[in-house]
Amino acid sequence: MNTFLQVLTNGIMLGSLFAIVAVGLTLIFGIVKVVNFAHGEFLMVGMYLTYVLTTWMGIHPFATVILVAPALFLLGAVTQRFLIQPLMSADDDHIQIFATVGLSTALINLALLVFGADIASTPASGLRTPLQLGPVRLLSGQVAILVASIAVVVVLQLFLSRTQTGRAIRAVAQNRAAAQLMGINVNWIYILTFGIGAACVGVASVLIAPLYPTSSGIGTYFVLTAFVVVVLGGLGSIGGAFAGAMIIGLIDSFAGFYIGSDLREVAVFGVFLLILILKPSGLFSSRLNLSHVSP
């Protein structure tokens, strides 16, 4: 029973980790309608920034968020403005895919050039301290991720539903042409959204960096799972992404324990492929948005 609780807790912790990475991805997905294949590399950039700021300046990893999140916002905004926006009207969606794949390749290799192949360890700063909560053990850093992922989801939802800018973002996603007629500057909304999505990854990276070693390939590791989460939760659904992340976290944790740790990914991607093929609208979306699927 205790083992079960421990595996369950691990799953939830892993889920919140996936959630905080996936939230920005689903936002960009849902609003800009672009699949950002470089999302994982944004995370990597954020983690390296955290590493550099903590080791060179000696500040607490969490404090770096005031620099890392804006930096990532800028990275996202620039990506949208100069890479995606010129391609928005391309009738061939290959072009957009290749654009972000190119960005991802360039960023991975840039990291290799700058930091080499060795891993970079951000100081733990007490975040790897185990806590004993009844029968289960977990790290304080994991709890921070859980709290932060919930906070990010709630803040984003409030922003989108309560503010005029947030409503404008939703309006653009639901009917781009009508949004333009309302006087919404659609290009600017896209830049803003991409920036916010990337800033969310910035928040994720300062939380993850103290717990996981940073390397040029870390983005690929997380982003594939994040894609699974986003498809599972329904494209563009922030709440859905959170729920999807929890499910994937639990599958990962239980599959790792009961099937074998080396087959965890097979279970996760198996679920992904099943969802993609059988219920492409995701598990939690009420309205069908199947522009990516033939009838």
Binding site: Q96, V231, F272, L273
Partner: peptide, 15 residues
Amino acid sequence: CFRLHGPFFALATIA
């Protein structure tokens, strides 16, 4: 996977 378009076909093949 043929039902999936563009990025989703690509994602499925990556998976």
